[in-house]
Computed example of a mutant assay.
Amino acid sequence: MLDRSPKDGGTNDTVLIGVDGALGRIHLNRPEALNSLNLDMVREIARGIDALESNPDVHAIALSGEGRALCAGGDIKMIWQTGRSAPDEALAFWAEEYRLNVRINHLKKPWLALMDGICMGGGVGLSVHGSHRVVTERTRFAMPETGIGYFPDVGGTWALARAPNHFGFWIGLTGASIGAADTLAAGLADAMVPSEAIAAMLSDIASGSTVDNAIVTHQIEPGVSNLKENAALIDSVFALPDIAAILAALRADGSEFAITTLAHLEGKSPTSLVLTLHLLQEAKGSASLEACLDREYAADAVILRGHDFYEGVRAAVIDKDRNPAWQPARVEEVDQQALFAAIKPFPSLFS
Rank of each mutant, 00 (worst) to 15 (best):
T260V: 12
A239F: 03
I234G: 03
A263S: 15
L279Y: 05
T276V: 03
G223S: 11
K268S: 12
A283W: 00
A244G: 15
D242E: 12
G285T: 10
H218V: 07
N226M: 14
D242N: 14
I234K: 01
A287T: 14
H278W: 05
T261S: 15
E229N: 13
Q219T: 12
V216P: 01
G254N: 10
L279N: 04
K268M: 14
E296N: 03
A244V: 14
L250K: 04
A263H: 14
Q281P: 00
E229G: 07
N226D: 15
A283N: 01
A249H: 08
S225A: 13
A263Q: 15
P241N: 05
L273F: 00
P270Q: 08
K268I: 02
H218M: 08
S269I: 09
E266M: 14
S269R: 01
L250I: 03
L247C: 08
E282Q: 10
A287H: 10
L279R: 01
E296V: 10
T271F: 07
A244T: 15
K284D: 04
T260P: 00
K228S: 14
K284L: 06
R295A: 08
L247Y: 08
V237G: 04
L277M: 02
L265N: 07
T276C: 03
A244P: 07
T271D: 06
A252G: 11
L293N: 00
I259S: 12
H264L: 15
D294M: 05
S269P: 06
A249S: 12
C292Q: 02
T260R: 10
H264I: 12
G223V: 13
N226G: 15
H264Q: 15
L275Y: 01
E229W: 00
K284Y: 01
L227M: 15
A248C: 09
F238W: 12
E256C: 08
A287F: 04
K268F: 04
